[in-house]
Amino acid sequence: MLGFILQRLWQAAIVVLAMSALVFCGVYAVGNPIDVLISPDATQDIRAAVIAQYGLDLPLWQQYFGFLGRVFDGDFGRSFVYNMPVSELILSRLPATLELTLAAVLFASLVGIPIGMYAGYRPNSPVSRAIMALSILGFSVPTFWFGLMLIMLFAVQCGCMPAGGRGDTVSLFGVDFSFLTTDGLSHIILPALNLALFKFSLMIRLARAGTRELMLSDTVKFARAAGISEFTILSRHVLRLISIPLVTVFGLELGSTLAFAVVTETIFSWPGLGKLIIDSITSLDRPVMVAYLMLVAMLFIVINLVVDLTYALLDPRLRKGRA
């Protein structure tokens, strides 16, 4: 098991290194941030001084290795736009995205999986058919449209929900969270719902397909022949057996939502990472972009590692090979 984790960390290091080089070169090709940073009527001397200050006069490889060296010391550089350390900037935005994403993914799983299992258990009942029709809708409706509709309905028409922003936050361990105040909670519901819709439909379909197949298996037949109740069969046998694909998708969705909740965050003006990255791309804030994309790569690696370890926890057959 230890060897397995070591191997994964080694792979992770290589991936992050490759990612940093790719991103650095890519962003370098996008454009010169100096044009955005200083006003066009600045003198040539000021312009040269600013360029030298940010080290933009050096050749690309020197800039890259200088950056790498600083990263090893924990310094991702300073944002051109906000003029503060990038690590601080990202950390200040991360909790907002984290709580929004977790709320969305947990809602999608905790509600979607039981509903999907029901639809798989009684595939021909009218309720199940309605569930499946809904899930197709959830797949096909564009996120931005659904978000706008939510705002129209709940914020504009009823006025019972706020249309955007984070609301009151409470500091916990030095980090600000919204979900601990009623005002914050009312702010998180709509964006979380919007973000959850697609994942919700996905979880329903996966849980349904798995359950439907398993209900015909000999394992379930044997459990029934032993007189075990249908609820116990579903909760103890079937749920455990369908959990592996569910965990895989859960991990992937968690990662991609954390990294790319851009649309929802923009619509609901949620001050998270998605908004930060969009802003930094428009203002060519190179250090933020590089650090952010490296963080995303790290995030996926960590999530995948956790998912793999969860497999071993869920399925004893997978433990043997790695022990």
Partner: peptide, 16 residues
């Protein structure tokens, strides 16, 4: 009670 043909299929692989 009942015993089935394939013991590979009847027992749940993820439960002890």
């Amino acid at each position: 009670s009942m015993v089935f043909q394939d013991p590979m299929m009847t027992l749940n692989p993820v439960l002890s």
